[in-house]
């Protein structure tokens, strides 16, 4: 749904990050971290990226998406676990005061860029 806007945001950040001294830069790969809880569908993101990257230095770049699991920690007993399902109740002590440590990421980690020709 909003993957189009996210793809545009990615291209903007990537384009701004290309070292200025490169002539005809071509972005080969973009490394992303996307949390399981983030409201982003990787397949839609790839599709949108392909469309909006046309005629930019990021055209044809590979989107490498590392999916980040949801890691939760209980505030009461400090037990931590990886939530496979959206159940955020402590498995050990049944407390409902649970912090989500990871799973909401939507980050660009790095880009791989070369000079073309």
């Amino acid at each position: 749904m909003h993957e189009m806007g996210i793809a545009m945001e990615i291209i903007k950040i990537v384009t701004d990050s290309i070292p200025k001294h490169l002539k005809n830069p071509k972005v080969e790969k973009i490394n992303l971290k996307v949390g399981k809880l983030a409201a982003v569908v990787p397949e839609s993101l790839r599709f949108c990226f392909e469309v909006v990257s046309q005629n930019t230095p990021a055209e044809g770049a590979l989107l490498h998406i590392e999916e980040i699991p949801v890691n939760a920690m209980c505030q009461s007993c400090s037990y931590s676990w990886t939530a496979i399902e959206p159940v955020f109740i402590c498995e050990k002590c049944n407390s409902g005061s649970v912090d989500l440590l990871t799973g909401r990421e939507l980050d660009i980690v790095s880009i791989e860029v070369e000079e073309d020709g």
Partner: peptide, 13 residues
């Protein structure tokens, strides 16, 4: 060459 960024995609928002 690899350029490290570690930037939130929605950082502008």
């Amino acid at each position: 060459m690899e350029v490290k960024l570690v930037k939130k995609v929605l950082s502008v928002n």
